[in-house]
């Protein structure tokens, strides 16, 4: 079976810094692929290259057989590829429902306003924001804003969802809740590429994992394989805390 998303030889420089270095990987249909690596490894930049926030210096991004390299983000979104932002970016003075409606309106199905509202309600309900539909996005707690990020992306009814640290900053109960939501999303047939620092969570959620270090791929495989990979452990040695967590997971 062919891959849903294929990334080939992707590179990106910022000034003198090589943030992503000849990276290749692919996401299978219906799978959850985890993308991990130390801070500043270039994970978020990979997302930005995939969905067109930045154009790559080299390499290709192929989504459902179509080359989407360098297309602007709003085109990429139409292809059915949605993402959340690591730093939440709510439309602060719009209601939760309106925020989600934007996602639904301009997503894969190009819905009319009325049908988009329906899709928005469904997405909000899925993440548990259905009782806050009329609240302004600025009034939500940080956990609420994280859920809003997710709901907005989901409302677009994407084929592939890119999640950038949706668990960061949540307390253990909220993390549990969010993991449940992510599983539900996957079970509904949406493929997921996710960045996460929370090792236990990503190890248990992912079907396979790609490890990034200084922009380059360090290792790839099943969660168990990756966790015991010597190079991975070494890369994390500067961060003994993380290394310990890796082994524990």
């Amino acid at each position: 079976m062919s891959a849903l998303l294929e990334v080939e030889g992707l590179s990106k420089d910022f000034g003198g810094l090589r943030a992503v270095d000849a990276l290749s990987f692919s996401v299978r249909e219906g799978a959850i692929l985890g993308l991990i690596g130390p801070n500043g490894a270039g994970k978020s930049t990979v997302f930005n290259l995939i969905n067109g926030v930045f154009a790559p210096d080299q390499g290709r991004v192929v989504f459902r057989g179509e080359d989407i390299t360098g297309k602007p983000p709003y085109r990429v979104a139409r292809h059915g590829l949605a993402r959340t932002n690591q730093i939440v970016q709510p439309f602060a003075n719009m209601s939760v429902l309106e925020n989600c409606t934007v996602g639904a309106c301009f997503g894969r199905e190009n819905l009319s306003l009325a049908r988009a509202r329906e899709a928005a309600r469904e997405a909000a309900a899925l993440v548990g924001l259905d009782d806050r539909l009329d609240a302004l996005a600025s009034q939500l707690t940080i956990a609420g804003k994280k859920r809003l990020e997710l709901a907005r992306a989901l409302a677009a009814r994407p084929t592939l969802l890119l999640l950038d640290e949706v668990l960061a900053g949540l307390n253990p109960t909220e993390v549990e809740h969010m993991i449940g939501i992510i599983r539900t999303i996957r079970d509904s047939g949406v493929s997921i590429l996710m960045i996460e620092h929370l090792m236990q969570a990503i190890m248990s959620l992912s079907d396979s994992i790609v490890v990034l270090n200084s922009g380059a791929k360090l290792a790839e495989g099943l969660p168990a394989e990756v966790a015991n990979h010597p190079a991975v452990i070494e890369a994390y040695l500067g961060d003994p805390d993380l290394a310990a967590k890796l082994r524990a997971a």
Binding site: V53, P73, R83, Q89, F91, M94, E98
Partner: peptide, 18 residues
């Protein structure tokens, strides 16, 4: 709706497909 989204956060709007 797209314009309002742009007015609030243009980058986020583009990422959502506006």
């Amino acid at each position: 709706l797209g314009l309002l989204a742009i007015g609030q956060n243009e980058d986020a709007a583009a990422v959502l497909g506006v």
